Amino acid sequence: MTTIESGQNAYVPKPNARFMLSHPAHLIAQGFGSGLSPVMPGTVGTLLSWLSFNVLTSRWPDVFTPFAWSMIIIAGFLLGIWACRKTSTDLGIEDHGSLVWDEIIAFWVVLVFVMPADFKTQLWAFFWFRAIDMIKPMPIRQVEKRLKGGFGVMADDILAAFYTLLLFAIWENL
């Protein structure tokens, strides 16, 4: 892991592939490398989520059913609590930008409820999820500040997923 200077005498770790591969928790929390993107790692992690959901669901539709995805999401959320806590501890920073497992799991939540959908609808889901995740409207920002550890890392993105789904529900009823 290399470090970059951020401000006066403060160092922020910049994880690399060696760090990511040094522990299974890092590999998971950093989205199998998508979190190492130098530009918008959360967006890259969400793109991985979108791609993996579509590939797995179209390739094995009898296996990757909405029920199976729900079980995967629950297991992934619990796994994410551990992986994000461990990786945050090892990086020395709570919810480091390279942690994208929370985006992956949360966008799967969105897709389970939105699918089947055409590309345009999926694109809108992606756009609104990323916008809500970045803006963090109330109470997402408060949850992010109050909840710590792996659960805190995972929880704010799940709320962003629910906001996205609420937006879609309102949109459907207009």
Rank of each mutant, 00 (worst) to 15 (best):
S52V: 07
G149T: 05
N9E: 04
K136F: 11
F119N: 10
W82E: 03
L79V: 06
G31S: 10
V109N: 00
G76W: 00
I105Y: 00
K148N: 13
M138N: 14
W124E: 11
A29H: 04
G92F: 01
A155V: 13
R85Y: 10
F129C: 03
I158Q: 06
V112A: 01
I170G: 13
S34H: 11
L79M: 11
W60H: 11
V63Y: 12
M134A: 13
L166P: 05
F107E: 11
Q30T: 09
I74K: 01
I72W: 01
L51P: 05
A106F: 00
P15C: 06
C84M: 09
W171S: 14
L111W: 02
T43Q: 08
M1D: 09
E172Y: 08
M71V: 15
L79A: 06
R141G: 15
V63Q: 08
H23L: 14
Q122F: 04
K14T: 13
C84N: 04
V100H: 00
K14W: 06
W124S: 11
L48P: 00
N16Y: 07
Y11F: 08
A155R: 06
F168N: 12
Q30M: 15
V153H: 12
D133F: 03
L147M: 15
A125R: 02
G35P: 05
A83Q: 01
V153S: 10
G7C: 04
S22C: 10
A169S: 15
K136Q: 13
F53W: 14
S98I: 02
F119H: 12
S49C: 04
L36F: 08
V55C: 10
Q8S: 12
A17C: 13
G76M: 01
F129S: 02
G45N: 02
F107Q: 05
G92M: 04
L167N: 09
S37C: 13
T121H: 07
W124A: 12
T164P: 09
S58D: 12
A155G: 09
W82M: 03
M1Y: 09
A117S: 13
G150S: 09
V153P: 06
